[in-house]
Design a protein around this nucleic acid. Sequence first.
DNA 1: TTGTAAGCGTTATCAC
DNA 2: GTGATAACGCTTACAA
Lengths: 331, 331
Amino acid sequence: MHRPTMEDVAARAGVSRALVSLVMRDSPKVSPGRRAAVLAAATELGYQPHAIARQLASRSSTVLAVLVSDLLNPFFAEIAEQLETLALPEGLQTILGSGGRRPAGERRSVQTLLSFRPAGLVLLGPGVPASVLERASLVTPVVLVARATRLARVDTVNEDERAGSALAVEHLVGLGHRRIVHLEGGDGSQAALRRKGFADAVQRHGLRAWVEASEYTEDAGEASARRVLAGGRPFTAVVAANDVNAIGAISALEGAGLRVPQDVSVVGYDNTSLAALRHVGLTTVDQPSAELARLALESLLQRLRDGRTEPVRHLLHPRLVVRTTTAQSPP
Amino acid sequence: MHRPTMEDVAARAGVSRALVSLVMRDSPKVSPGRRAAVLAAATELGYQPHAIARQLASRSSTVLAVLVSDLLNPFFAEIAEQLETLALPEGLQTILGSGGRRPAGERRSVQTLLSFRPAGLVLLGPGVPASVLERASLVTPVVLVARATRLARVDTVNEDERAGSALAVEHLVGLGHRRIVHLEGGDGSQAALRRKGFADAVQRHGLRAWVEASEYTEDAGEASARRVLAGGRPFTAVVAANDVNAIGAISALEGAGLRVPQDVSVVGYDNTSLAALRHVGLTTVDQPSAELARLALESLLQRLRDGRTEPVRHLLHPRLVVRTTTAQSPP
DNA sequence: TTGTAAGCGTTATCAC
DNA sequence: GTGATAACGCTTACAA
């Protein structure tokens, strides 16, 4: 598996290695004749540039690294795809790392991605401690999506998730619901925001802030809904941690013989493709993945090209998408 | 953003750069005293090894590259996560590339991944031409999952998809269905196998091989089901291209006022988490993602460590998972 | 056990 | 325009 190098191409074309390098990066200062000769030699030999060596020598990278905390959550997968699409015309190639839903996994993944010295790093919903983010921000521009921070060198692109949770509550209260339970998405900072938005909103209406521990997965949604049912305390509505969590919760409810939305209303969060399935028709708070991706890349490019050093904090307004899992509260 | 190098660490610890290198790869032939000194210097300086440089110098890689043809298809996302989990204990760090469902995108992604000169490349359901795969196989061991090939240097891990499609047909015929339409997953080689399995099976039962063009996406499933409905020819069962395609088809059917499975039965393919949602309950042909991932990595390691050069072709037996989208044919 | 020195495949800086 | 030559940060014989 030995690959030809620039040296081989140069020898074959009868020129110096430096000239081959110029041709490869199509520099304007190469005579057409030589260029053609070099290109011919390159294809004959099946030469492929060695990005690793290039990067080491040029001390610069054209790689955009993206960490996806959970590949199985369509919300993150969608943003990742968007990012890749947008980055390409900017001359950035994307590589992905998966966190596998565990902070330890994310940390390793960040380490791996960083070891390639990418031009920038975008993290989608990461759960890693701030110290990891800070260290990363010393090496390359870092943008956080769906995660807040106070770190001075890190940009963030978020939706106002407190307001988003409140939207869900307002919707349910408007439908007459008074006993609403929130399934909380673990102990991350975003989950805390959603809980706070929920708690504030229900309390504004004189209702009790009923929160049940859960996670951002379908299994957790099912398990925690089951726990709520087992508790025996009556409820008519669920504000789930996110869409997949909501789907798990719906499974548990239906498994217990309850109908959604006639007996219990359920609201998700993220407005993933899952929620949009006609079969599911989940009422949910929209997070505009395309817009989040666009802003993330824009922030990165500003640091990269315009030399911005002040952090940027994007906070998008949430929007509720009403589908078929919410209805008037039963009497 | 200047990072300390081995040179800096060596200077600080009062040793040579080579010794630092040994410590970093924790070689046994370093005295405990020196090792401690080097490690101390490294942490004081915040030294982080430069994987790029290491790879260039050692002409070897610990990176496993994985190309995912479609991140939004949970089937591939699941395999990717599995691969990452399995590769880590083997000392391989995983990076992902996304093909974005387009061969052009895949090709670019393969290029990017290959430019890092990974220890191996696993492609999940790729649609790139064989020439791309062959070129890749000259640089690094290549394993194909959910895609067949005759290339001599490329391993494959597949399910017997002809048999899988046949299973779906047998199931439907057993339920009394006689007018079955297959939504075809595009013009890839795997889609052809599924179609062939379908056609052979229905013809064995003296039925007409009715195939409608589609794609491996939800939108395509919805669109093609709609076309079938518009065609006016009666049918009682659908063998969809895959799970997401099936879900799109179900949307179209329900949108037209048909009930699944009372009026029309639907079978998917892949047995993704989507199909398992209680809300969806899709009857589908299982593809064991964990097993596929395991075999893919095993094949790679055999080439890497044991020096195997003969290609390996894994062909798993399919299994039908019956859920709630299939029922007795209406009279 | 530790140090020296020669690469790895590029790019970048000069002269020519 | 073109070609030497020195980096880039690390690994790896080979010496000591």
